[in-house]
Design a protein around this nucleic acid. Structure first.
Lengths: 287, 287
DNA sequence: CGTTATTTGTGCGTATGTATT
DNA sequence: AAATACATACGCACAAATAAC
């Protein structure tokens, strides 16, 4: 099947032990030699595992003294939990339900050896409920021009949608302001797990995240999300769904979610309206 | 004097070549064997250099095909240390030295009860030297990590076909490529501490960060940096300093640094050229 | 269509140097 | 001074992915 590399296995094992509190404040982790003896590995393999843990910020090493766990390994306020909590005050509207596609770029970024992915496209709207949390103050400064608001909400894209799906939406009202269009790509093995889920079907409306729908079905939990953030112009689909002019500069956020074994599980490409959304992270000192 | 490790030297050399545009879109980097032959190193040493570059997000590798440079200048900014390490391979050019200003917006964001701030404006350029790093502290960031690798196009550009000849860089930019303009605002109490520093004077050039210049003078160390990232058009100052058209969409990153008591110490507003810079951060699960 | 060559991925063994206790 | 433990570096072997033939 898929023989996990030995250094990955060891890395995960050490990570688990540290998380379980096996190595409190001043307690030295096993030395390289001890791990070699215990697991029957070579010293190079053990070293590779430790190098990765150092890069990850989980441990630090002192020559001649030993390896120690970094206490308070949080240093990252912008965590995956924050991404999931997006569902708490926004609404998701599926524009194109989960379906099979051929996409070389997405497939290779998911590290697949073929070109088939399963894709779902949706937009997200700020909720208009009273008492909802502040969706994010806009940075108002001179010179920032708003995109064309003339035809707000290109409803033409999804005709005859209102009606069923009675959950929590008040028909006849503007339920919120769309601020992002997201395209999610899944490998087939993952897509199978949620292919029956109504949350990802065409025209579905709800307050969840793909990752939230996905995770209960996975063997391994999501452990990491690598993000890259840049600027990209709006294409036709994005412009229509958000009611901004085509070519409008958007904040583009790509996220590659991986599980604890490092296997990519989901690739999402989001285009945010910069007038309505600002990406926020707080960085902390590791020490 | 401690000699720089061989894999660090090679890593820096490759990083410089990539920044200099030696490996455009579909061009493969030298293989491990080629580098072994060229530098007289062992394959493991070459591999270590590549692993670090992968972890850094500078290159991606495909088994059986080769190693390729990632488009633009990718950079992992997951901690405050990462922000400070910008000084290691970029150059800062002061455009407007530290001087007193009245700026209501900046002052209020620094939580001041008046309107006076001290401001310095500079741009940053990709470095081109084959520089020796000082033996200050041990280098974190080792080993490789699977999840990332943001881009992977299957651009099968045959070498030998001309199209665009190598080079393709702006003529007359021998000292580096500018990629960001930053405006830093300081409260008066903080500005006093560095008002004599030559590093922040008009037309100063150096390889440091404002935060790096600042911190030794502070009572409390910097503990936190709250960032917000959005899109903003280039104003005249930015356009002139970076050589892009005015109104060009830029990646705007605001950072508010605070010390351990929560007191704001520095506000920086940066405009990055999205063509040359992608903001990258990896989120992890806390527990 | 399989075969082969190239290139990266994984793993092992060894040797030497350096920092700490 | 000696033992311990990490840091760097060389060597080799085989597996897996890719591309060219």
């Amino acid at each position: 099947m898929k023989p996990e590399p030995a250094y990955q296995v060891l890395r995960q094992r050490l990570r688990d032990e540290i998380a379980a509190g096996a190595y409190p404040d001043g307690v030295r982790l096993p030395t390289e030699s001890e791990l070699v003896a215990e697991h029957g590995l070579s010293r190079q393999t053990v070293r590779r595992a430790f190098q990765d843990l150092v890069a990850e910020g989980v441990v630090y090493r002192v020559p001649g003294r030993g390896t120690y766990a970094n206490r308070g390994y949080l240093r990252q306020l912008g965590s995956i939990e924050d991404l999931m909590s997006l569902s708490e005050d926004t609404t998701m509207e599926v524009l194109q339900g989960l379906s099979r596609r051929v996409d070389v770029t997405a497939a290779s970024r998911l590290r697949l050896d073929h070109d088939v992915v399963y894709t779902v496209v949706f937009r997200r709207l700020h909720d208009r409920r009273a008492g909802a949390k502040r969706p994010g103050e806009s940075d108002r400064r001179a010179g920032a021009k708003r995109p064309g608001e003339s035809d707000r909400r290109a409803g033409a894209k999804r005709p005859g949608e209102s009606g069923r799906r009675a959950g929590a939406q008040r028909p006849g009202e503007m339920n919120g302001v769309p601020f992002v269009v997201t395209t999610v790509h899944l490998p087939e093995s993952v897509a199978r797990l949620v292919s029956d889920s109504a949350e990802l079907a065409d025209n579905a409306v709800g307050t969840n995240t793909v990752i939230g729908v996905l995770e209960p079905h996975l063997d391994q939990p999501i452990a990491e999300a690598a993000q890259s953030i840049t600027v990209a112009p709006a294409d036709e689909l994005v412009a229509a769904a958000l009611g901004c002019p085509p070519e409008h500069p958007m904040l583009r956020v790509d996220r590659l979610y991986s599980d604890t074994t490092g296997t990519p599980v989901e690739l999402s490409v989001s285009h945010f309206l910069p007038e309505q959304y600002t990406y926020r992270v707080t960085l902390r000192r590791s020490s």
